[in-house]
Design a binder for these strands. Structure first.
Length: 272
DNA sequence: AAAAAGCTCAACCGCTCCTAA
DNA sequence: CTTAGGAGCGGTTGAGCTTTT
């Protein structure tokens, strides 16, 4: 069929935004909101594509944007959530108030991914050396904590855990995965390094996916996620991402709150 | 001091999903 | 049911800045 271009490109400005443009966009949105991004630039008097305006607003001009370096806690959260969700930056961003998906994506590609890669290389080297030295000498070896263990999916995930990730991954087929990953026939991201013992072991997954109690969410809800992940996650995603003004549906948000709260209870990741 | 290499991050692009007609 | 259009997402790019040689 072929999609029409999102906007009439001729005569529209591209590239970095000027202060003046920012001010126009901010004041327009403060007065009128943004019920229709496509029509916004014309109404506001901006020579920009609606998409460009939305991006500028959500990634830079929104009043609740937190700027500055990421804290270690934030980075840990990103690593943990990336482990669970893959490159679902918008979902990860939901857990980091004031941070945008774009920012998180940048941090991942510029800092975190490299950190992981270098540590995995180090670990491989040390393991290779260890294997060699083992055959050469019988000296006792103290196993260093394997950082990569924090970063790969559990080797023996339960069926429900697998389905949870499957649905997270496959609900957007175009989602790609990081370079260290391969994809199986179901679109599930799999890491090459699956022979490691897992830092996020079964207890993590069962804790994450189970529910006992006194939280906001009904226990039926989490059971529903586990037993009907497709329905639950589709519901959550739809309600969470589609209303720019309201933000998140309370029901869907409660589910995420619960999941994210459990992630926070995880043991601290080792220092890199 | 200058050039090269590396890094960061704002912005763009193309795609999918959802919804209304 | 089909189609068109809007919104949002993730991948990628490239300008500008910083560090290294």
């Amino acid at each position: 069929m072929g999609r029409a271009p999102c906007c009439e490109k001729i005569g529209l400005k591209k590239g970095p935004w000027s202060d003046e443009e920012d001010q126009i966009l901010i004041s327009y949105i403060q007065q009128h909101g943004h019920p229709n991004w496509r029509a916004l630039p014309k109404r506001a008097g901006l020579l920009r594509c609606g998409k460009s305006c939305r991006l500028r607003w959500t990634n830079y001009l929104r009043p609740d944007i937190k700027r500055g370096n990421f804290t270690k806690e934030e980075e840990d959260t990103i690593i943990q959530l990336h482990e669970m969700l893959g490159n679902r930056w918008s979902l990860i961003a939901m857990k980091l108030p004031g941070r945008t998906d774009n920012e998180i994506k940048n941090v991942w590609h510029t800092h975190l991914k490299k950190r992981l890669e270098s540590h995995q290389t180090t670990i491989h080297d040390s393991k290779r050396r260890h294997t060699k030295s083992k055959s050469a000498s019988k000296a006792p070896h103290v196993e260093e904590p394997d950082v990569s263990q924090c970063l790969v999916q559990p080797k023996h995930k339960s069926f429900n855990e697998e389905r949870f990730i499957l649905n997270q991954q496959s609900s957007r087929e175009s989602s790609s995965i990081t370079e260290e990953e391969t994809t199986d026939s179901f679109g599930v991201a799999k890491h090459e390094e699956i022979d490691h013992d897992m830092f996020l072991d079964d207890s993590f997954w069962s804790e994450t996916l189970s529910y006992k109690g006194d939280d906001v969410m009904e226990s039926d809800s989490i059971t529903n996620i586990v037993e009907h992940p497709t329905n639950s996650l589709t519901l959550m995603e739809n309600t969470n991402t589609r209303d720019p003004n309201i933000g998140c549906d309370t029901y869907g948000m409660d589910i995420w709150n619960d999941i994210f709260t459990r992630i926070e209870e995880l043991p601290e990741l080792p220092e890199f």
